[in-house]
Amino acid sequence: MAGASTAVPAVVVRRSLAGQGADWRGLIFQGLLLLSVVITLLFLFILLADVFSRALPVFTERGGSFLSSSLSSSAARSGVIQGLFGSFVIAIIVVIVAFPIGIMTAIYLEEYAPDTRLTQLISINIRNLAGVPSVVYGLLGLAVFVQLLGPLTGGRSVIAGGLTLAVLVLPIVIITSAESLRAVPQALREAGYGIGASRWQVTRSLVLPSAAPGILTGTVLSLSRALGETAPLIVVGAVSGYFSTGNASTVDQLFGRFTALPMIVFNWAREPQQSAFGPLTAAAIVVLLLVTLSINAFAILLRNRFEKNW
């Protein structure tokens, strides 16, 4: 195999030195690569152009009222404020539940746990968990957060939804954090131990600061994954129709029924009056895109802020 792979360049070199023909295999390969890029960009462009062109009239006609209105059976009065609120609360719950638990699990597995069969088994299982379909997490959330812990979470509430999504992204947070911890050069740790630092000191002062950019990027990307999920929310019981909260305070609303941006997209796409709700669906997609894009931009900012070269 090694002989064959060196033989090709040798032929190529000889040919090009002799002025014979071009490296056509290389050219085909390059062409295929370019084609892949074009196809990827084409689909992205078609999707964005379609969504934005259909959403534009909504934003020009409705303006801010689309963002500040509640759900309604009439397309002209419908808006996404309840979805924005739900998605915002879900994001906060994911940040305060999944991030610390996930990052600390990763630190333990990478820095503290002995490298035994058991540790490897746990790591492999966490990887598998990241591949479990999201609707399965929805069923878990329904059984645990809605039914078992119903008295604490308020049943089919935004808290139950947020906790479900936090559990959903937990494996992703752990994996990305573990990857960034593993990328920290071993020499750095050895240098720390060499000057007599304890494991805690090495982890705190050397490993974590150096892994921070990667950890932050990974975790914030997992947050945008959580915000885009619909299936678990359907199972947990996000409202599919109309809801009003009456006199409930913001705290009470956390324990009441909820909806989120992807749920709104899903429901509007099912509305019978597609001539009216079609553009609204596109507009809600744009809002969801903007929210996730701004979260990703925030992740990049954080990474640049903390990035260091060793």
Partner: peptide
């Protein structure tokens, strides 16, 4: 009656 909380679902 803005004080009444109403939820309408359609499963």
């Amino acid at each position: 009656n803005p004080g009444t909380a109403i939820t309408v679902d359609g499963p």
